[in-house]
Design a protein around this nucleic acid. Structure first.
Lengths: 392, 392
DNA sequence: TGTATCTTCGTGGGCGAACACGGAACGACA
DNA sequence: TGTCGTTCCGTGTTCGCCCACGAAGATACA
């Protein structure tokens, strides 16, 4: 009845090596003493070679599809590989391999503690983890408010001919051109944060922003019974085209439609200026004077701390505030109870896995998934601490 | 002004190798073309040896504190190691090392799709990842409702003298005895799920259950204005002593006290039987008949699907249900909108990191953290999909 | 000075895999 | 039969590190 029951009715040891070699996971049961005595039956190229009656070199040629092997030998080796469920020792492989890989990451430059810093840290971690697999990551940054910096940068990258590129495609059209060029040079690209569906790319890691807007709406509007007003703060962004914040907004609106809240919820739209905080404060003050029933406020970019700051200044602590991403200032306001909820998206993981998957593709020859949506993490004052503390 | 600005005002390349070698991360800036041409300046034992004017063997003896080295040589080598910021190639090390490690995991046996299955999967993943570092994991299971199975099992483990033990200390007293014995044999133990503070252990991974109860209360009770009743389902557990569900309950109560909700919230306690679902249904029916103002319901173990099932049968869809852990049945009810919220705790990661940290301690000689609380993840119908989909 | 003992240290083989090199076997053709 | 070109395949070296072995030098004592 129990999954791991044996004749003694309770003691089971699963010999995990079997799992590794893909030989039946559950059927083989060993008493611990027996298990402890066994050696690691590692299967090497040498073993495959002798079993197939060929030399190591031949097995190697088969493994790497390098040709110069007769049909007969090919057959024999493949059969043994299959039977033995051979998996190469990736450490030994990287150690012996003389091939070196140059990857380039291209993301917006950032100020300390801004969103992209956390992405960048993910690249750093990956750089360390894959260094001994002969991978080097060159990190490059463009100015997301100046498309020329992007074009100039990508031209340099094309010249340098790296082995792979990781790209935050903020500038849609220019990114697409860049990708086409890379495609022609057979340099693989992976997208991070957002994606360009028409482009040829290896993987994408990012949040489903529509759904994260939907979740935000649920968190802000769940259970309302009477008419309320909600402040919606948006920021115009000149130059860039692709934008996660737009689909977050659309998801937000979709929730209101799905739940038939159009009658109950009135949205008060405010457009923040990117730098003039006095102006923003004034806009907020006016909105609050004219609308007496404001219960909630939301921003769709990562700068919700600005909203929180102003609402504190205006002494409006009863307004529920919700926003995105764990910038230090956002977290502080959350911990103080001024921001009620933050939605996070594991930016460091996005970068790390992007690199890892490129290695799996180019070096390890492993399966990868093309589209990868990261979780929509919900952080409250009460659970933020353990989220931040848990460094993987 | 920007963190990664250079003289061209926008193009920066950071040479990540420098980061790896711990030489200043931000100060060294290279143009991409220059960077692309550079070789990997890997520092090997051989390099250290020649710089220190000794042989590789001597460096090796210093690195492993294996003695037979004169004070003078020791000094010289250590100085060069420091200067060069030498980090050994762990792959090459594991490849060459003849030492093999036997780890044992000891957790409750489980039925398919129960909580412990996900923990077990974490051990499987670790077994695969660390196999080529010469690590083998023996997985053992006891019956959590029969303390004798635990004692008998741990006696066998003691006999087998593994290199490390991973333990779910469900039976407090017996686990402590086991740990003392292991301590005498100098076998390190790590706790998973819960911990015994008096015992000598290497790491602990688990959720802060008090806080996760606190979070559950917030999610269930946030914003209530009028008097309501809440169903609190508990399950008596015979035999075992240490129990996460108790502290979850305490956290739940603490929230009510902190927010002065004693007046508003009336708790209706029900004790479920572990197997008799007809009985449980009856208990619920009675409670619902006698209490007309029930708005929410909670369980503190992972079996919230039983509660959901009964409330569906009783046609009580307006009651908010909250529970723990992503059992398949729980997830189904969440997706159907019957359960409103689940709190999750990444059980697979708990196991995986427990193994990883043991490797860091015994094999890689790296720093580890003793107490590790995993995040308190909040899952709703709207964000569960991406959480489940995101397999690391 | 010779011999034994102890301390200190260098060398070489091996871990599993990549890959270059060149040899063996075979057929074609003069 | 000899020469050349192909096709196929085995061998040897290398990667960075571990570790066993034994050599060299120092010291002590006869």
């Amino acid at each position: 009845m129990f999954a791991h029951e044996d004749t003694n009715n309770f003691i089971i040891t699963k010999y995990v090596l079997l799992l590794y070699q893909n030989i039946s996971v559950c059927e083989h049961k060993y008493s611990i003493s027996k298990c402890m005595d066994e050696k690691f039956p590692k299967i090497r190229i040498k073993d495959i070679a002798s079993l197939a009656g060929v030399s190591e070199g031949t097995v190697d040629r088969v493994l790497h599809n390098r040709g110069d092997v007769s049909a007969k030998s090919q057959e024999a080796v493949k059969k043994v590989l299959e039977e033995m469920n051979y998996t190469p020792n990736l450490f030994a492989r990287s150690l012996a391999s003389k091939k070196q890989y140059r990857f380039v990451s291209i993301i917006p430059e950032y100020l300390p503690e801004e969103y992209w810093e956390r992405v960048d840290k993910g690249f750093d971690k990956a750089a360390i983890d894959f260094f001994h697999h002969n991978v080097l990551i060159d990190k490059m940054y463009f100015n997301q408010f100046n498309v020329n910096t992007f074009v100039e940068l990508t031209n340099k990258v094309i010249e340098a001919k790296p082995d792979a590129v990781f790209l935050a495609p903020i500038f849609r059209k220019e990114s697409l051109n860049f990708c086409k060029e890379l495609s022609r040079l057979e340099i693989p690209v992976s997208f991070i944060d957002s994606l360009i569906p028409e482009a040829d790319f290896l993987t994408y890691y990012g949040q489903n922003s529509f759904q994260s807007g939907y979740v935000a709406a649920k968190l802000l509007l769940n259970g309302i019974k009477s008419k309320i007003q909600i402040l919606v703060i948006r920021t115009r962004r000149k130059g860039s085209v692709s934008n996660q914040t737009i689909s977050r907004y659309e998801g937000f609106i979709q929730y209101i439609n799905d739940k038939n809240l159009n009658e109950l919820v009135e949205l008060i739209n405010i457009e923040f200026d990117n730098s003039d905080e006095d102006l923003n404060l004034g806009l907020l003050r006016t909105a609050l004077l004219g609308n007496k029933n404001i219960r909630g406020a939301i921003t769709f970019n990562s700068k919700v701390y600005r909203l929180a700051m102003h609402l504190v200044a205006l002494n409006k602590s009863e307004i529920h505030i919700i926003g995105y991403d764990l910038l230090k200032k956002n977290v502080s306001y959350l911990q103080e109870g001024i921001i009620n909820c933050l939605i996070a998206q594991r930016p460091d993981k996005q970068a790390y896995f992007t690199v890892r998957d490129m290695c799996r593709e180019l070096i390890f020859n492993q399966e990868i998934k093309k589209i990868n949506y990261v979780p929509i993490d919900i952080l409250l004052k009460e659970n933020i601490e353990y989220y931040l503390q848990f460094i993987e």
